[in-house]
Design a protein around this nucleic acid. Sequence first.
DNA 1: GGTCAACTGCGTACGCTGTACGAAGAGTAG
DNA 2: CTACTCTTCGTACAGCGTACGCAGTTGACC
Lengths: 256, 256
Amino acid sequence: MNSEYSGSGDPAKSLELLWRRRPLPTRGPKPALTVDGIVTAAVRVADAEGLAAMSMRRVADELGVGAMTLYRYFPGKGELLDVMLDTVYGELPRRVVPGDWRAALDEVARENRELYLRHPWLLQVAISRPPLGPNVMAKYEWELTAVEGIGLTDLEMDATVALVNGYVHGAVRTAVEARQVIQRSGMTDKEWWLAHVPHLDQIGDLEKFPVSARVGTAVGNEFDAPYDSEHAFEYGLERLLDGISALITNRSAPQG
Amino acid sequence: MNSEYSGSGDPAKSLELLWRRRPLPTRGPKPALTVDGIVTAAVRVADAEGLAAMSMRRVADELGVGAMTLYRYFPGKGELLDVMLDTVYGELPRRVVPGDWRAALDEVARENRELYLRHPWLLQVAISRPPLGPNVMAKYEWELTAVEGIGLTDLEMDATVALVNGYVHGAVRTAVEARQVIQRSGMTDKEWWLAHVPHLDQIGDLEKFPVSARVGTAVGNEFDAPYDSEHAFEYGLERLLDGISALITNRSAPQG
DNA sequence: GGTCAACTGCGTACGCTGTACGAAGAGTAG
DNA sequence: CTACTCTTCGTACAGCGTACGCAGTTGACC
């Protein structure tokens, strides 16, 4: 779930911005800024300080202008966010791995993961109706190509790509949250747990949860946070691709 | 990724609240409110109007008191959110399906899905360090029990439960976002798409994305939004459980 | 070359947020 | 009755997105 929404205004205006088709006027003073310059500054702020810190005033400060100046270039914050999204999607290498759907989906998952790790604020942007910019569309095309021609229906292709994307989103969200909570609190997970145990002991209900106690201890002893998240990603991706593999094998040899 | 964080203050204070162990004083006026009453009101507001609308002032209004009154019961908004979370986790039936790990995990997934659908604001609460209340702990115990005794290591049990929970979180997030965007925009997905097509045509790069065009059309023709999200949930859950099944089968008969 | 419309930059204002501070009143122990 | 503790809550602060309208700049046209 996310808390920042993209601009839901005029489609013509939004597409104009995303594809840089704004007709530039002949009269009046030359604009001091560019759409690209504002987006770059906004991405820089969001990367460094988080999406919550990326306010219109903060981005304007970054560029040395007043806050309301930005509204000469974007109808509102939502549209700025749309263009930010399409812009960083352009960073995806979109390498195509031909002839091996599993390797191709693996590549899709890993490139998306890298993108989320580079721009964690992406995890907070709701994209149920993506801004239809050039990079958003190229990304979807690239992802579908990974599962093209292997016996899936069109609907299954879409569902499979959505499943992998959803998995990566969730896995990275968990990892980034874990990383951020360590920073915010100044405590590792183990320190946090050890600060709670004495009080839980005093409440005295811990023996009601025997499996949690055993598994929790095993998890705590084995992992420190950074390795944990990488391990969880690999574990989940393998399970997921195994499950997709079962479907594809079934498709190749139906009623087998 | 989420935007609301739980209280990171004094563990003693937090656990006191979660387990209702606050020693009540003898002197002074009797409190007009109770922790449970405030939590109930806050959950009601969050359910009906979303987490963004659940401000301290709004909850206080709901109870007919001033905003600052709430701070006599909770150190801050984060702790209120913690108790809200633990409280709604108490709604889980936590039915145990013995002897069939797949049915048990399926049950875990579906009950969690129902909970998220009833309280969509849960999707926005970061839980990388969950509030250690009675219902949070019972939930974890219940989920681990589903995969207990089937040949997984303790670490794999934890990873598997986290994988299923992460999947459900992502799937419901997507579904709820889709539902909300229809409400906010007053347009169905099809109407939204049809509003964009003419402008995209004018830009004229649509033929660069042949697979997207074909698959997108198939998806658009087949689904309206409500059925779509249910279908996506079933499809993904089946793939995921198939993937976990492959691991468990391997465990039972190692080295082939 | 003068005039005017179009355009840019931006100061101010509004209602919203979480919560620190401290005053005012209520209730009980001694 | 006094003294002390506890509750309620008004006010204040810094920050948010952005509507409105003014001031100053620039090029097109007569």
